[in-house]
Structure formats: C-alpha cells, structure tokens
Design a binder for these strands. Structure first.
Length: 321
RNA sequence: GCCGAGGUAGCUCAGUGGUAGAGCGCGGCCCUGAAAAGGCCGGCGUGGGGGGUCCGAUUCCCUCCCUCGGCA
C-alpha cells in the first residue's frame, strides 16, 4: 500500500481515527500550485482546487490554472468544470468538492484542497446552512426596492424580522441585506438562525490547514512578474476569445476582464490596463490575507521568495507526520 | 528674457486669516448560495524655500526656486 497520511493523533482523535483532509491556501502568486504537487506526491493525495475562478473552462491564463506539466503529475479536480457562461457559487462548489472527496477516499487517497478562495475553504471546513437555492424573483424585487428607497430602508425591515442579522450586517451592505430578507421571505426563518446550523469537514475529519505567506512587498513583486508572464503567454488572445461568449455574471468578475475591456474601448493603453490588473491583484491578495489571518486553525508557512517549491512541500510534510 | 497659470497627502485636485480636506492609492477589518465579488474603518501632510504684515499665515505682501502654456 502506498504510504498514506498518518497524522499525529491527538487524545480525542486517537479512538475515532478520523479521515484526514489537508488544505493548502494562501494569497495569489505564493506558489501554491507547484508546492501542492510535491506535497500531494509525498502524502498520496489528489488535488481539489479551492478557487472560485479556476472552475471556468475557457479561463485558464487569466486565472493562472496550474500548467499541463503539473496536471500530469498528480490528479487535479474542479478545474475548468463549468463554462464561463454559467453562474457558479459556493454551494455548487461545496457539493462538487465533497463528491470529489468521496471518490478520492474510495481510491484510498487523501484530499488536498488547494486555492485562495477563503469563503470556499470555510464552507468546506465549517459547512454551509442548507436552504433552497436563491429565489431570483424575490431577489430582483428586493434590489429594486433597495434602489428606490435605499439600502437603509431594507436594513430597517431586516431589523424587525431578524435583529441579530441586522446587527451583523452593515446598513450599506445591500447584497447581504437582500440575501437575509430573501431567505426570510422564502423560508420564514431568520438567516441568523439558519446560519448556526452548519456542519463541515472539521466535524468529521482531521483537518489541517496550511497557509503560505511572505512579506507583502515580495508578494506584490511576484504578482507583477506573474502578470507580465500572463501577457506573454497569450492572455489578450484568451480574453478576446471570451468576448464571443455570454459570460456569466460570476465569471465576469475575474480580474482582468474589466481592465482589458477598457483597453478595447479606448479608455486606456494596454500597459495601463496591465498596471490596473496588477493593482487589482495586489488588493485582492490583501483581502485574501485578511480572510486567512482570522482563522486560528491555520498553520502559517513563511515562504522565502526564492525557496524551491519542493523544499516548502517538505517543510509542510514534516508538520504533517 | 517677457507674459500668463500653477506649486497643498503616494497620485489627481478642493478649500480657508485661526496649523487643512475629497476621490483614488495605501493600511486594517467584516464576510455562510455573486466571494478575483460586496461592505466598513483609518489622513498616512515640514501646505516649494526664505523673509515680511498680523495676536495668529497654508491663506495677504516681497523675493528666490521649480513646473506648464504663450510670446520672444
């Protein structure tokens, strides 16, 4: 039998012998993909992407999917699984990820989740409250009301039906106010109650989470370098091809689409568009870090800017065994 | 060289005789079916240099420096 992952058993776990799930997360451009492949080989894992944008088929360069070389070394899942014309969301991701995980378990392998989407990670580890899918008509109506009367008006309504949620959601955060009202309208229950009902991998698995980190200045440099590389590798052609599609709203949020659109509309030069993309990605990395920082279960892996991926993988592996 | 406009936050620029703001950037934070999204908080400043008037100047005056435009 291939060496399977043995985690150091803590007192509580020793009797249960929970299956394990490993997460390798971190902001963009820290080198997750390469490190993940080395790590996966060492622990007998298959990789499940934990990225909200790499799920789209026609978007490879723009989302920095792992290279073909890497894909050949270890089985990867949930990359390019839907058309960029389709909407995608957390719950769909969760269903697909859990199903994939079961298949991997059947093969006697360990699931290694790799990506930078904090919410997707949390929804796996901690769970999601299950309710019916979004109700588009209710939602549309609520947005219309928000437009007419302002988000404060909706927030006041939320305060009446679900004070707890209203306290948590800022009165300007239209998106979450609408969602909370929508849930109440369609289920008759306050979202704040439903949200307490969640079960995730943390309840059934021995979950290990590793987050890569490096000084922000180094990270920004790496981001810039990667953006330059993306352009060299045909980013513009890829995005030009995307224009022939009817991109879904969710896919359209990928960093770079708006910027290149601006270029084609003559609002800026290509270099300016590239600079805007770099900036947007720096900001994105910052938000990612904020998300990960608050999760106290995370074990941080400080990566040297020139440290070989294999070495990083080794360090993580040592923490696992 | 002359004329004109201007030098205020990292950038673009407001404003005021009582030591300054906005947008963007930058930093921190929030996040349960849009999350590479959305929202919140923070001014981060030798107000070009020097001198003068004034109780008090970033604001008024003088001078020097710099930038931009026009004329030479």
């Amino acid at each position: 039998m291939r060496k399977s992952l043995r985690l150091k058993a803590t007192p509580q776990e020793s009797s249960h012998n929970k299956p394990s799930a490993v997460f390798l997360v971190g902001p963009t451009a820290t080198g997750k993909s390469r490190i993940a492949v080395f790590l996966a080989r060492k622990i007998g894992a298959e990789i499940i992407s934990c990225d909200s944008m790499q799920v789209y088929k026609q978007m490879s360069i723009i989302t920095s999917k792992p290279s073909a070389v890497l894909l050949k070394k270890v089985p990867h899942h949930l990359l390019g699984v839907v058309s960029a014309e389709q909407e995608y969301d957390v719950s769909r991701y969760r269903r697909q990820a859990l199903a994939t995980m079961r298949q991997i378990a059947e093969r006697g392998k360990v699931p290694l989740f790799v990506g930078g989407t904090g919410l997707y990670m949390s929804i796996l580890v901690d769970g999601i409250f299950k309710e019916k899918t979004p109700h588009p008509r209710t939602r549309a109506l609520l947005y219309k009301q928000a437009q007419q009367h302002g988000s404060g008006y909706l927030h006041a309504r939320l305060r009446k039906i679900d004070p707890e949620a209203a306290l948590k959601i800022h009165s300007h955060d239209t998106r979450r106010i609408v969602r909370a009202l929508e849930v109440f309208k369609t289920t008759g229950r306050p979202i704040s109650h439903l949200q307490k009902e969640r079960k995730g991998l943390a309840d059934t698995h021995a979950v290990k989470i590793f987050c890569l980190s490096m000084p922000k200045a180094d990270l920004d440099r790496r981001i810039d370098r990667r953006l330059d590389e993306m352009f060299r590798h045909g980013l513009v052609d890829e995005v030009r091809a995307l224009r022939r599609l009817r991109l879904s709203r969710t896919a359209a949020y990928a960093i770079g689409l708006k910027e290149l659109q601006g270029y084609w509309e003559g609002a800026c030069s290509l270099d300016e568009a590239k600079a805007l993309m770099k900036r947007a990605t720096h900001q994105y990395a910052r938000r990612q870090l904020t998300w990960f920082r608050k999760d106290k279960r995370i074990q941080w892996i400080a990566v040297g800017s020139a440290e070989p991926p294999r070495q990083v993988a080794d360090r993580i592996w040592k923490k696992l065994s």
